[in-house]
Nucleic acid binder design. Sequence first.
RNA 1: UGGGGCGUCGUCAAGCGGUAAGACACAGGCCUUUGACGCCUGCAUUCGGAGGUUCGAAUCCUCCCGCCCCAGCCA
Length: 559
Amino acid sequence: MAISATPPASDFIRDIIAHDHASGKNSGLVVCRFPPEPNGYLHLGHAKSICLNFGVAAENNGCCHLRFDDTNPSKEETEYVDAIMADVRWLGFDWGEHLYYASNYFQLMHDYAVTLIKMGKAYVCSLSADEIRSYRGTLTEPGRESPFRNRTVAENLDLFARMRAGEFAEGSHVLRAKIDMSSGNVNLRDPVIYRILKASHHRTGEAWCIYPMYDYAHCISDSIEQITHSLCTLEFEDHRPLYDWFLDQLRIFHPRQIEFARLNLSYTVLSKRKLIKLVTRGHVAGWDDPRLPTLAGIRRRGYPPAAIRAFCGRIGMAKSNSVVDMALLEHIIREDLNEQAPRALAVLRPLKVVITNYPADQVEEVTVPNHPNRPELGTRQVTFSREIFIEQDDFMEVPTKKFFRLVPGGEVRLRSAYFITCNEVIKNGEGEIKELRCTYDPASRGGASPDGRKVKGTLHWVSAAHALPAEVRLYDRLFTVASPDSEAGAEFTDHLNPASLETLANCRVEPSLAAASPESSFQFERLGYFCVDRHDAKPDRLVFNRTVTLRDSWTKIDK
RNA sequence: UGGGGCGUCGUCAAGCGGUAAGACACAGGCCUUUGACGCCUGCAUUCGGAGGUUCGAAUCCUCCCGCCCCAGCCA
């Protein structure tokens, strides 16, 4: 339980809710909701909202509903609702029996609309979409009233009934709230609350041909579910007067809407629109591509859900637009994995080493700790033999000054095994290093020399004859610039990192990894954290995804 | 020129009239059978700016400046 036990943050929303809870408002109940529209996959921005809503509810002994905001059948699909539920569960939250759909309330919403019409607060407008737009005015000029604004209640009732009955074509009529065409807040200039859409709905099928708009549907859904605190992002602040207006007119349970800043993360994009573009244009390999900030993507990448929760707790909650540094996310991922992940030896770019004084027919087992800081996780036996592989990067024929790995004539330790000294460099015709000839010190078994001799470097290794082949996918940041969104005059895809994925097909890993289950994480010593790909790994085919590298002060040294 | 928000360290972010938390990043150092982890140290005399109120202001008032959102029959 490494970092998952991050104490719940205090923030302006929690302050408000704690105050309401303590003062007995809503009988002391706290009910929140996470209301995704099933038209795309969830991403880290949603994770912030999920952690907030479910977290705050739990902290106040309340509950949090999962409600699909499915009021636009032309964009929504069952595939998305299934994916969303799987992602929320994976993140570690449980909505219990509180699974809802805005579409469940279509009849009630319809009836409330009729009520509004009877109150003279809503009317059927027969202007075209373009006309409505021009009547709306601009940000600085008031709008003009629709010529249909003063239809009689009877006429409105008749027209609305016929809209519902399917008598009219899409776009021919809408139902509008009658509020104030001169309001400085454009949302209040007689907003459309129902439109005709002859589309099949993923839940209600052909039952309806008129569908409610967000502003109308959301507040009513919240009210029906007795949501006490309706938390949403900043861009809905302008809609709050409308949210309040409907509930006040209808005199029904009135939740409080509170807005917070959405999450932005450097070196990636967190907008549904952009993510869809990356997927459909083939810049990535689907919604769960490990380079994507989608929950499905980071899951496949190996980010632990507990770390994501810790991240959401640590970034804070405020109303100022901000961009969280990707380095913070990576730090928290490492923090969790450092504690949780068992260590393993894996060589990504193998360089053969022959230990000339090691008997050709000898094989032995060396004992390697599974976790340096957690002895209770035990040890394992790893096979050592005359021919091994080390990392190509761990040898330099002509070393730079601060390089303390293997060099000609130099001695290093093979982790948990022996000290070896390089005696000879074998090259091919092109001058490429093909093999190293070394000698080992039999007295240094386990990695320490009885004479107290010190070596500066310790290398990871695998036995050539015993190691298993594996494919390793090295993932890096998706974009090369911190803010791909806001680079002036450029499309965000212009900044895609061409090196965001490097696939290594010829890696060698220690044999114990054959038993690793899908999605399990390991630290490949000195390299980083890797997880077994949940889709492509098979019993006879090892595939690992690099979650994140280890912090590496060596690459920062001026070589 | 309309309406709604926001401006505290490079990045997030506490602070709610009593004299600038914490985290990440960064820079040094220690430790080390992962150049990892861990540990230590440093890192805002100042809170967008200018006035004002006060014994005392990041916190209250005034004006100014900057940034974000809004004119879908999307959410």
